[in-house]
Amino acid sequence: MADAVTHAVTIRHNFETAHRLPQLGGKCQNLHGHSWWTEVTVSAPAMPEHIVIEFGAFKRGIRQWIDTYLDHGTMLGADDPLVPALQAQGSRLYRFGAANAVPAEKHAADLAWPTVESVAVLLGRVGAEVLAGMESAPGARITAVRVEETSVNAASWTR
């Protein structure tokens, strides 16, 4: 019996975003920023057209979402007392755990705080939405997301 083969492609993108984690205490309770890097992997069991997905379209979809909602903005928990102040200033804000989530925040409605682990889940959901809107090999799906918030700290989500 032959080993099962899986074909995969991975895109990588970076963004600059602030967050804070007051529920953890320590230095991360302060508002601070990172140069985040993410990798999103799409895998498929076969590739009849010799591609898993078209790289350009997938990269554009992921990058456009990140650049629109996260880049040069702030990620906060919906209950964070800084939310009203940043909203009043017209700052780009992405809320995690928002009961009254705007459409873009639906991906993080069940994630209370913007931990690096939650950002990996968020970007996996965004990747799945982008993938659903494009042609791909049969059975293609998001199978891994890696998010680095610093050069030494990362979290991953895998299927």
Rank of each mutant, 00 (worst) to 15 (best):
42 V>L: 07
93 L>T: 08
35 S>Y: 01
4 A>P: 06
35 S>A: 12
115 T>R: 06
89 Q>D: 11
111 L>A: 12
51 I>V: 15
159 R>V: 13
117 E>Q: 09
151 S>D: 12
98 A>L: 12
93 L>K: 11
108 A>K: 14
109 A>F: 00
86 L>R: 10
149 E>A: 03
39 E>H: 06
60 R>N: 12
76 L>R: 11
159 R>A: 15
97 G>A: 08
131 L>M: 06
121 V>F: 07
113 W>V: 01
56 G>N: 01
119 V>H: 00
90 G>L: 14
119 V>E: 05
144 A>S: 14
90 G>T: 14
1 M>V: 11
152 V>L: 13
29 Q>T: 07
98 A>K: 09
151 S>E: 13
29 Q>S: 11
108 A>T: 15
55 F>G: 00
26 G>N: 03
13 H>Q: 07
138 P>V: 12
49 E>T: 05
66 I>N: 05
36 W>E: 07
30 N>T: 08
72 H>I: 04
58 F>I: 03
124 G>K: 02
157 W>G: 02
53 I>H: 00
53 I>D: 03
79 D>A: 15
15 F>D: 10
152 V>I: 13
82 L>N: 01
95 R>P: 03
28 C>D: 06
132 A>L: 11
91 S>C: 14
95 R>V: 07
8 A>I: 00
81 P>H: 09
104 A>I: 07
50 H>S: 15
2 A>E: 06
71 D>R: 11
60 R>W: 04
95 R>Y: 08
33 G>W: 00
83 V>Y: 06
45 P>C: 01
52 V>Q: 02
153 N>T: 10
59 K>L: 01
27 K>T: 09
108 A>R: 10
145 V>T: 04
7 H>F: 15
78 A>G: 10
147 V>Y: 08
138 P>E: 13
48 P>L: 04
82 L>A: 08
115 T>D: 07
96 F>E: 08
2 A>C: 01
105 E>P: 03
115 T>A: 01
98 A>I: 12
111 L>Q: 09
87 Q>I: 10
106 K>Y: 08
105 E>I: 05
126 V>I: 14
69 Y>H: 15
141 R>D: 11
47 M>E: 11
114 P>D: 07
8 A>H: 09
85 A>N: 09
60 R>T: 12
79 D>M: 06
11 I>E: 06
66 I>V: 15
151 S>F: 02
35 S>L: 07
100 N>L: 04
156 S>C: 09
44 A>Q: 04
88 A>I: 04
158 T>L: 13
17 T>C: 15
73 G>S: 01
136 S>Y: 00
88 A>P: 06
5 V>Y: 08
2 A>L: 07
44 A>F: 04
157 W>S: 02
85 A>I: 14
58 F>T: 04
115 T>Q: 03
104 A>Y: 09
127 G>F: 02
62 I>P: 00
138 P>L: 08
72 H>L: 05
66 I>E: 05
135 E>D: 12
94 Y>P: 01
151 S>R: 13
125 R>K: 12
67 D>C: 01
36 W>M: 13
158 T>Y: 12
138 P>D: 09
16 E>Y: 14
159 R>H: 12
126 V>D: 02
53 I>N: 02
128 A>N: 06
36 W>G: 06
55 F>T: 03
142 I>L: 07
158 T>D: 12
79 D>V: 07
77 G>E: 06
100 N>D: 15
13 H>K: 10
65 W>E: 01
11 I>V: 14
133 G>L: 11
35 S>P: 00
155 A>E: 04
69 Y>P: 04
85 A>Q: 15
112 A>H: 09
31 L>P: 05
